[in-house]
Design a binder for these strands. Structure first.
Length: 423
RNA sequence: GGAGAGUUGGGUGAGUGGCUGAAACCACCAGUUUGCUAAACUGACGUACGGGAUUUCCGUACCGGGGGUUCGAAUCCCCCACUCUCCGCCA
């Protein structure tokens, strides 16, 4: 969430920036200013009242100690009257604070200045395009056909065991999953990311910290008996490691990577988008997370994008990098780059990574702070990205590397798969 | 799952319902002393919000989380979470 200071310091700029995300924030900001003023006024009055009560209570103690009972009783009556008023004020304080919080939480993050204007995916800016000039056979198959042909993935069996969107990987299909996970983790740890194996269920506080709760409650699987949520991404547990933490300036940058299965209910999806591996309820992903000093977060973002690019290149996939436009970016992001790989058989681009800088938006919710050179407590910046998500990478690998002999494994992956061809 | 004991500031740990936002010790930071290091001594040493001043200041809240009793709660009561010990169960 944004800070009140961010909104109040330059109201016009705030409105202009939020407009890029398609939000008309003027009325909400007005409301926030009014509530903030009201909150301050109430607190001032309430604090004074409580100070009086505290003082009176001390006097009562002293009077009792001296055996001056009657005077003490008179004071008690005085406090009772004060208390009645302060209770009412306190109730109003809570009400105003809650309304203020609700209003602030309703606003998305400011997009960075270089975010393109636009409403939909069509307005995203292609910042890099790397094509592949290999040609596929005429009768090239989509990955779900290839998965069946080579007995790599059984979607129907997943339906039997659980339901749609929970595929069963078999044989070389399963081995390919494991190889990709290891390959990504290996590359990430070599690039300085600390490997983490986090819980894949989290509590409510963690869900709130990274912004999944309360807004996206319906998108997560919820184990209601224990009130735990299955994570939609490793970002949730990994970033929450630093919830309520005050770091030192010299602790930065903090770089972490984690493999986890991810669970998404994907309520409302249908059609070709969910065919095969394109959209699943459970999938594997390796994530990278960075915590950064504010002045260095954009350099960190560039570094992360460059790193993810080396992975896609190593897999020899045609890809492009998009800078998302204001209308297509997530609620919490300030700047996002998407990686898409081209699926020749499906003739479409598949998103395989999304790398974002959240600036202080998540940190404010998480209370993730640091002491600056002047010993002042400041919000840190958080960033994360997929590095990488498996299903669509697998889809692209199968489709783009199909040959009459079988499916060719990219050179860099062979040490991890232990085979160079799926036939 | 059952029974018992716990949860206090970065750490250890004290705390008869008022003099405790919290002793003491350790760590950290600044300074004095010193040829350097060490030691010793001195001082500072939580977070958030609000008010004032924008260098010192004041108020309020916070002793796992939430509620309650009381003029007054770290201290008493209730609920929840977590930790430890024992029993049970189990990969």
């Amino acid at each position: 969430m944004l800070t009140i200071k961010q909104l109040r310091d330059d109201r016009e700029a705030a409105i202009r920036r939020l407009a890029k995300k398609g939000v008309d924030a003027a009325s909400v900001i007005d409301k926030i200013e009014k509530l903030d003023d009201r909150r301050k006024a109430i607190q001032h009055e309430l604090d004074e009242m409580l100070a009086q009560q505290n003082q009176a209570s001390k006097q009562i103690g002293a009077l009792m100690g001296q055996g001056r009972r009657e005077e003490a009783e008179a004071k008690k009556a005085e406090v009772a009257a004060l208390k009645e008023r302060s209770n009412a004020l306190n109730a109003e304080f809570k009400e105003v604070s809650d309304a203020l919080q609700a209003a602030i939480v309703s606003l998305p993050n400011f997009p960075a200045d270089i975010v393109p204007e636009g409403k939909t995916a069509a307005d995203n800016l292609v910042v890099k395009m790397v094509e592949d000039h290999r040609t596929l056979p005429e009768d090239a198959l989509p990955h779900w056909e290839l998965a069946r042909k080579y007995d790599l993935i059984d979607f129907d069996l997943g339906v039997k065991l659980t339901g749609a969107g929970f595929p069963v990987y078999k044989g070389k299909g399963a081995r390919l999953q494991r190889a990709l996970i290891n390959f990504f983790l290996e590359r990430n740890t070599r690039a300085g990311y600390l490997e983490i194996e986090p819980p894949i269920m989290v509590n409510e506080a963690s869900g709130f910290g990274t912004g999944q709760l309360p807004d996206k409650e319906g998108q997560m699987y919820h184990a209601t008996v224990d009130n735990f949520y299955l994570i939609p991404t490793a970002e949730v547990p990994v970033t929450n490691i630093y919830r309520d933490v005050i770091l030192d300036e010299k602790d930065f940058p903090i770089k972490m990577t984690a493999y986890t299965p991810c669970f998404r209910r994907e309520a409302g999806s249908y059609g070709k988008d969910v065919r095969g591996l394109n959209r699943l309820h459970q999938f594997d992903k390796v994530e990278i997370v960075q915590l950064s000093l504010p002045e260095k977060s954009y350099a960190a973002l560039d570094e992360m994008v460059a790193h993810v690019e080396t992975l896609v290149q190593a897999l020899e996939l045609p890809y492009r990098i998009l800078r998302l436009c204001g209308g297509d970016m997530s609620f919490t992001s300030a700047l996002t780059y998407d990686f898409e790989v081209y699926s020749k058989a499906q003739k479409r681009w598949l998103e395989v990574s999304s790398v974002s800088n959240f600036e202080s938006f998540q940190a404010n919710r998480l209370k993730l702070r640091y002491k600056d050179a002047n010993k002042k407590t400041q919000l840190a910046h958080t960033l994360n990205g997929s590095s990488l998500a498996l299903p669509r990478i697998v889809a692209a690998l199968l489709e783009n590397n199909q040959t009459p002999e079988g499916i060719r494994i990219p050179e860099a992956l062979i040490p991890f798969t232990g085979f160079d061809l799926i036939k």
